[in-house]
Amino acid sequence: MTSTAGDDSTRSTLAEIAGEAGVSVSTVSKVLHDRSDVSSKTRAKVQRLLEQYGYLARNSPPTSQLRGGLIEFVINELDSPWAVELIRGAEEALHGVGMGMVVSATHGRTKLARQWLDSLATRPTRGAILVVPELTAEQHEELRRLAVPFALVAPIEEPAPGVPWVGATNWPGGFAATRHLIELGHRRVAIISGPARRLTSRARVGGYRSALEEAGLPFDEELVRYGDFTHGLAHQHALDLLRLPDRPTAVFAGSDHQALGTYRAAASLGLRIPEDLSVVGFDDLPFADWVTPRLTTVRTPLAEMTALAARMVLQLIAGDQPETTRVEVATELIVRESTCPPGAAEGGAGPEGSGNPRAEGGATG
């Protein structure tokens, strides 16, 4: 018997086996993946049917023969240093306990997300780490039905109670970035954020707005732009901002990629960074320390986030509940060379006579 992983025949075959055995599809999946929470009598009955249908012959060996089995890592996109850092953190955490990891990219397409879910029944999957914008009710139900424990990383909205997830302290990060620029003397500070409906974007804009309020500065809607955390759209938003009659002297970008788009826009308009425009990013990806000038940014411990999500999933696999289902890791302002007082000549002082701090590190708001 042959079948393509995740196709309709695979799903119907599992349903047929479940029907003959008088059990649920999730129980068949547990036996197929050698999970322990099935009675010996039921296991024997299902295994006979799996052998009869040729399933055990064509699928991967039981989990016990694969050391710790497999964890699914699902992410929207793979083509960025951001994704690499997230994958690295999960892989390191799982490697230490002998777990393998399968990486899938959905590219924001519902069809690919559906294909990934369909394929779960054909692999010895023990759990899943989901770095996707949102988990639909259908996807949540399917994971529950297949008895696959999971944790979310940086979800688009705060998940339902009881759903494990890991995020970052985005509001304090946005506050610290904006306060840094204000303390340098900037009064026209713009922000280029991610999608307006995302939890991370709203938190960072919230921190930005609070820092302005604390300093007695007005919140100007004209200086706020929402994008998609990528270089291209940020470049256009930065051009629009820098062409304003009363242009900003500083830009807080919601990601390091958006900061690079801002760098490009400034260069095309003949503006120097940081002398004519200060720029702060968010994430502290490796290239933030390679660009010229080196980028001041808010460090998000991406690898730590997915490592924590992996530990949550491992706890659930072991039958334990995590101490908390919501974890936010601390962000940290890293001051480099892309910020200085407004109008300051290279190596000089700003309007209030203060030089640009160059020390690595900084405080979280």
Rank of each mutant, 00 (worst) to 15 (best):
E20C: 03
A250F: 03
P301V: 01
A253F: 02
T125I: 12
I334K: 08
W82E: 07
D8I: 13
R144E: 12
L308D: 01
L117C: 06
G100Q: 06
Q115I: 09
M101N: 05
W165G: 10
E92G: 02
R311I: 00
E346M: 12
G261Q: 04
G361F: 05
L135E: 11
L32W: 01
F282H: 15
L302P: 06
T364Y: 00
A18N: 05
V31F: 01
R126E: 07
H180Y: 01
H140P: 02
T106L: 06
P155M: 04
A176L: 10
V166S: 04
R179H: 12
W165Q: 05
T300V: 15
G343L: 03
R311Y: 00
A344E: 01
E141W: 10
E91S: 08
G173T: 11
T324A: 05
R145E: 11
A113G: 13
P133A: 06
S119E: 13
T297K: 02
G22L: 03
A253S: 14
V28G: 09
S354M: 06
T10I: 10
R197I: 14
I192K: 00
G206D: 12
A266N: 08
V84K: 00
V38G: 04
D283C: 12
S193K: 08
S64R: 14
L152M: 07
A250M: 01
L66E: 04
G207N: 07
R11K: 12
I182D: 07
E183P: 12
R145K: 15
E134G: 12
R126P: 04
L233F: 10
F287Q: 13
V280Y: 00
D79V: 14
A196T: 12
S80Q: 02
L285T: 08
A253Y: 00
E91Q: 11
D246N: 14
A309R: 04
D320T: 13
E16S: 14
P351S: 11
S12Y: 06
S278M: 11
E85N: 14
T42S: 13
G254C: 05
E158I: 15
L56D: 13
S64D: 06
L146Y: 07
T178V: 08
H231A: 10
G54A: 14
E77D: 10
